[in-house]
């Protein structure tokens, strides 16, 4: 069964037709070409496909696209400013060495963004909790946690 849906993706309103069975992840990657959102486990266990839906971190592989109808989705591609001006989280991830193979990074950054949007001054436990759905096999998480702390400071300072 086909459904006409309307999404706001990274600020743009898009209307498209999706099959009942398509996940939000499949639609983002295959229909909209937004391949920054990654498929790792495809079963909700790894956080690689994390995007924000109306501001909350969700697993796009565990969500039917049809159920995202009318909602606002932000993916990793929606963070940077004009001319690839890095979001403070992206900048901190780069500078702190928090990205190695980089495959899990978009998911981590989106989880962290959902956290900082709600809680601009998180402590270490809150940061670890916010990325508890995200699996990284390269970094051992230390530099990721440092990067989120550093971005929070920078974003807090800008206010």
């Amino acid at each position: 069964m086909k459904h006409d849906i309307e999404l706001k993706v990274n600020g743009d309103t898009v209307t498209l037709q999706v099959d009942s069975r398509r996940t939000l992840l499949e639609v983002l990657r295959e229909q909209l070409g937004l391949t920054g959102t990654k498929e790792m486990c495809n079963k909700g266990d790894c956080g690689g496909c994390t995007v924000t839906l109306d501001g909350n971190a969700v697993l796009s592989c565990m969500m039917l696209a049809v159920e995202a109808n009318g909602k606002e989705v932000v993916t990793i591609e929606g963070l940077a400013g004009e001319g690839y001006r890095l979001h403070p989280l992206q900048k901190a991830f780069v500078e702190r060495g928090a990205i190695q193979c980089g495959y899990c990074s978009p998911g981590f950054i989106m989880s962290a963004k959902a956290l900082l949007d709600k809680n601009p001054h998180p402590n270490g436990d809150q940061i670890r909790e916010a990325i508890s759905n995200n699996i990284c096999r390269c970094t051992g998480y230390v530099q990721i946690i440092e990067a989120i702390e550093s971005a929070a400071l920078e974003m807090g300072g800008a206010k």
Binding site: L34, T75, A80, Y84, F93, V94, G97, I99, S105
Partner: peptide, 8 residues
């Protein structure tokens, strides 16, 4: 890592 952070 910049490309990776951007999702590019």
């Amino acid at each position: 890592s910049t490309d990776k952070a951007l999702g590019r």
